[in-house]
Design a protein around this nucleic acid. Structure first.
Length: 518
DNA sequence: CTGGGGAAGGGGCCC
DNA sequence: GGGGCCCCTTCCCCA
């Protein structure tokens, strides 16, 4: 009996212990679950908050970057109006001093193993080569410190990528916002500065050097006399000869089919420069028309130089006149200006025209003349000589006035011409295109007639002889000028004094030295 | 400083 | 409409 009671007692004790144990376990689990839930909730809220803050930060950075880009564009538009005729050097200096924009899709390939660029360091330009090179696209203003940098990482082909802007804000290290585990968004920004160099200082230095590269691209020219080595026809042309608004693979210059390596890129860097907003693009590189023009010149038999300098030929065909469509003019030939012979005058005049006529870059130059109201015509842009559009200028030479409708407008200065060929020739003033090259020297010309006239220098031909002396001249104008020496004619009189001069140039110099108000 | 020649740039006209 | 010619202009260099 006693054993039975003991057994029952033990059983009851065991049951009670089990119940208590279960209750304790349940209690513990409940507490753990509650705490875990609270903890998770807190984590979730923190993560959510972090995402929100991160998103705000990114939006803010994007906004700042856009504003900065726009401001730089405006500054650049103002700053890129040099007053000197030495456009090449001035442009180089200006680029050093103030900085320039690079093209939004321009890729500068930094030499491997270097974190910085030197000014004299050879630069290659790469586009979509999918190599293991770094593509650094920057919009930078040197005088404002670290700026907006557009960066496309290697292998990325999405043109929109270049529109992703990362701003290097002071006190906000780029890496601080990049948590690969908690921030799956914004993968683009993770191709960050560290890809360029290790430290911020190095980044800044790199950007400065990139500026050098940029201005090299901007102030290109074809001064063959001053820099004939650039004309090596077989090697890859230097970066100076690459158009800034198109990515081109330097290795493609020898391949005619590969010229338009940027053709699949619907965007254009100059759109970023001229208007970071939604300015339509008018860049017509390597269009059929221009290509045809080039081919025509190349086959004209004037010179072998037309073809064997195909690298420079890229300079030629950047601009094409379009008579239809409604696209704004986009001056895109800055990199082709500064020719030593033209002395940059036309480039400067064009810039002046931009100053005096901002509409040049804001409305289509391709309007038919008939579409222009008289007022707009009268206030139209000046030509390279400062004359108003359609004003018969050039020394008051008698013309038939508007006998021929000037339907074709220059896309740079809006000057009107009667036919497409004329405006194409004229636009070479802006583009620097010189399709006609001398076979006996490095001189190149915009017009076939100029080449023909130039070749008399080599032949020694002087068909214009003075009837009153032994002098002979290669140009009729020279003979005419010479004859004034015989006749004593001095048709140019100073309005401020009694001096008279046989040439307008003398009068002008006289006025500058004697009657200058400055 | 002026004058003169060489040569190139730009553009209009004519065929 | 396009090519060639011509004219005007301008810059550079030199005497």
């Amino acid at each position: 009996m006693a054993n039975v009671n003991c057994t029952v007692f033990h059983t009851q004790i065991a049951s009670i212990m089990e119940v208590l144990a279960n209750a304790a376990v349940a209690e513990i689990c409940k507490v753990v679950d509650d705490d875990y839930a609270v903890f998770r909730l807190e984590i979730t809220q923190s993560q959510k908050e972090n995402r929100g803050l991160r998103r705000k930060l990114q939006l803010l950075e994007m906004k700042v970057a856009r504003e900065r880009a726009e401001r730089i564009v405006r500054e650049r538009a103002l700053a890129s109006r040099p007053s000197s005729v030495k456009i090449l050097d001035r442009y180089r200096e200006m680029a050093r001093g103030e900085g320039h924009l690079t093209g939004g899709h321009k890729s500068f390939v930094k030499p491997a193993g270097h974190n910085t660029w030197r000014d004299d360091q050879p630069i290659t330009v790469d586009e979509g080569s999918r190599t293991s090179t770094q593509h650094v696209i920057m919009i930078e203003s040197a005088d404002t410190g670290p700026g907006v940098k557009l960066e496309r990482s290697e292998g990325e082909e999405d043109p929109r990528q270049s529109r992703d802007i990362q701003t290097e804000m002071a006190g906000v290290p780029p890496v601080a916002m990049q948590d690969p585990t908690t921030a799956p968004v914004q993968p683009r920004t993770q191709h960050s500065i560290t890809e360029v160099s290790g430290t911020l200082n190095t980044v800044l230095k790199t950007e400065t050097n990139t500026l050098t590269v940029t201005h090299r691209l901007l102030h290109t020219g074809s001064d063959h006399r001053s820099d004939p080595e650039r004309l090596e026809p077989l090697g890859c042309p230097p970066a100076e000869y690459l158009p800034i608004f198109r990515q081109r693979t330097v290795h493609s210059f020898g391949d005619g089919d590969a010229l338009d390596t940027g053709g699949n890129d619907p965007s254009c860097s100059y759109a970023t420069e001229m208007d970071p907003g939604n300015m339509p693009l008018v860049l017509e590189t390597q269009t059929d028309l221009s290509r045809g023009d080039w081919n025509r010149h190349s086959s004209s038999g004037y010179s072998e130089g037309c073809l064997d300098k195909k690298g420079e030929g890229l300079v030629v065909d950047e601009v094409t006149v379009k008579v239809e469509g409604d696209v704004p003019p986009t001056w895109n030939a800055a990199n082709h200006l500064g020719d030593g012979h033209s002395r940059g005058r036309d480039f400067l005049d064009y810039r002046k025209s931009l100053e005096t006529n901002p509409d040049v870059i804001t409305h289509s130059p391709l309007h038919m003349l008939g579409d222009r109201d008289p007022e707009s015509t009268s206030r139209g842009p000046s030509d390279s000589h400062g004359h108003v559009l359609f004003d018969q200028a050039q020394g008051g030479r008698a013309t038939s006035g508007n006998s021929k409708e000037k339907r074709f407008l220059c896309m740079f200065c809006n000057k009107g011409f009667s036919c497409l060929q004329k405006v194409e020739i004229h636009q070479r003033v802006h583009t620097g295109e010189k399709p006609f090259s001398c076979t006996q020297c490095h001189m190149r010309f915009t017009q076939a007639g100029h080449l023909k006239r130039h070749q008399m220098v080599h032949t020694g031909e002087k068909p214009y002889s003075c009837t009153q002396c032994h002098m002979r001249f290669a140009q009729a104008g020279d003979l005419k000028r010479h004859r004034r020496g015989h006749t004593g004619e001095k048709p140019f009189s100073c309005p401020l004094c009694e001096n008279r001069f046989s040439e307008r140039t003398y009068l002008r110099i006289h006025q500058q030295k004697k009657h200058s108000t400055q």
